[in-house]
Simulated scan of single mutants.
Amino acid sequence: MDLTSIHPKVTPIYQTSVFKFSSLAELEDYYTTPGRKGLYGYSRSEHPNSDELVAEVARLEGAAGGVATGAGLAGLLAAVLATCQAGDHVLCPAELYGGSVVLLSQELSRLGIETTYVPLAQLYDLAQHRKPNTKLVLAEVLSNPLLTVLDGPRLAQACREQGIKLLIDSSFTSPMLTRPLDWGADMVWHSATKYLAGHSDVTAGVVVANDPALNKRLRQVATNLGLMLAPLDSWLAVRGLKTLRLRMRQHSENALAVARFLAKHPAVAEVFYPGLETHPGHDLAEAQLLNGLYGGMLSLRLANDTVAAADDFVQRTKLFPLAPSLAGVASSCSYPTATSHRGLSEEQRQDLGITPGVLRLSVGIEEPAELLADLGQALD
């Protein structure tokens, strides 16, 4: 069958583990000319669907390349191992996603990579907290779950002055709200499971960078450890990216409406959303985030700050089902104490402000009036 005359509008799913070569010369060309267009060998190393996903995310982020991995945390693993080895040190804000903390402190520590956590407000003074072996700083644009706003340009400048690589987790924001490479960050990491794919039907990670040597090393790590994203999942993530701009606008508009509603409700003691003028990071978010959007994630603290009250809300809501992830087109609710931050001690959660009555809402793209009505009946 001659396939040369077929020109699909959408890239096909290359559901193959291996590609064929026509000669030993072509095989040699494949190994000696990495990245040559049209030459693929083994899907553990690369395939057209993964390349398409990385190219599109890189375009949106203003990057030169990167790698797509089988999960968000696999992307973090690739980024850390591309820049650090045994005996090196990573510096992070204390307000960090619990899954990242577990990977760094429980798994990578066994490989001899040390991690220190510093309150974000103090992290900008890198000279005070760095060590001679500090190689990487990891930070989130908006912290999970209490939406603390990062001063990205300030941290990037501090990293440049200290000669330390900066990795930014932009999973909560996507390139529609932030482009951290423009600040001077070295790498941008996404749990593509979240907003990039956007439909709660794929698990993936993407890391992009501008430095060719760094991108080469990211690919090597992903290949050698078997982290590469599979063809079908890559295809699904690319499909999701096609509506990212539309989705992020609706997510953000709905979340702002929800945040304003919750801020006035007597059953809610506190709302964490940078789009609210009362949020301590509002001015910074307004100046730093793009397109006048603040994202679809917010958290609230119930006035009755107890497990029982949180469980009552979870059982009463119809449109915010309890789910341990975020950013799908349908709204959901998460309980950080039992999901994203269950790996932390009770004392650590208290220090971060994650009390029993804290709930994290991922606001979808449904009709906002329906969301407000559901929240009202759940809280009332």
Rank of each mutant, 00 (worst) to 15 (best):
G99V: 05
G99P: 03
Q288E: 10
G72W: 00
L246S: 11
A192N: 03
Y294A: 10
T337I: 10
S50G: 15
L91W: 04
R260D: 13
R110H: 12
P119I: 08
V54L: 07
E46C: 07
A310I: 04
Q220M: 08
G66T: 12
A55W: 07
R219N: 10
A310M: 04
S340D: 05
G205K: 04
T11C: 15
R130M: 11
Y30R: 07
M248A: 02
A204N: 08
N49R: 06
L227F: 12
A255N: 03
S299R: 05
A263Q: 14
L225I: 04
L196V: 09
P321M: 10
K242H: 13
G70H: 11
G343I: 05
P153D: 10
A308D: 15
V363N: 03
L166R: 06
W189T: 01
S252L: 11
T11K: 15
A310W: 02
K318E: 14
D151M: 08
G72S: 10
E161T: 12
L138R: 03
K165G: 08
D186R: 06
Q348K: 14
A68W: 08
L60V: 07
M187Q: 14
K318A: 14
F320I: 08
A121T: 13
V206C: 09
L181K: 06
S170R: 09
A71V: 00
A192E: 03
V221W: 02
A78L: 13
A63H: 05
V307I: 11
E370I: 01
M1N: 07
G87V: 02
G295R: 06
Q220V: 04
N304E: 15
L177V: 11
D29A: 14
L352P: 04
E107A: 09
A139H: 02
D29G: 07
G70K: 15
S252H: 06
G240Y: 10
Y273I: 06
T355I: 11
D201T: 12
G87C: 03
D201R: 12
F313N: 00
D201W: 06
V10H: 13
L322R: 12
P368E: 06
S252E: 02
A338C: 06
S170K: 04
H251V: 03
A79R: 05
A285V: 01
H129C: 02
G65Y: 00
A255T: 13
P34T: 08
V329Y: 04
A303W: 00
K318G: 03
E370P: 00
A74D: 13
H199W: 13
A25C: 01
D233Q: 13
S174W: 06
L111A: 15
T355C: 09
N215Q: 11
A222Q: 03
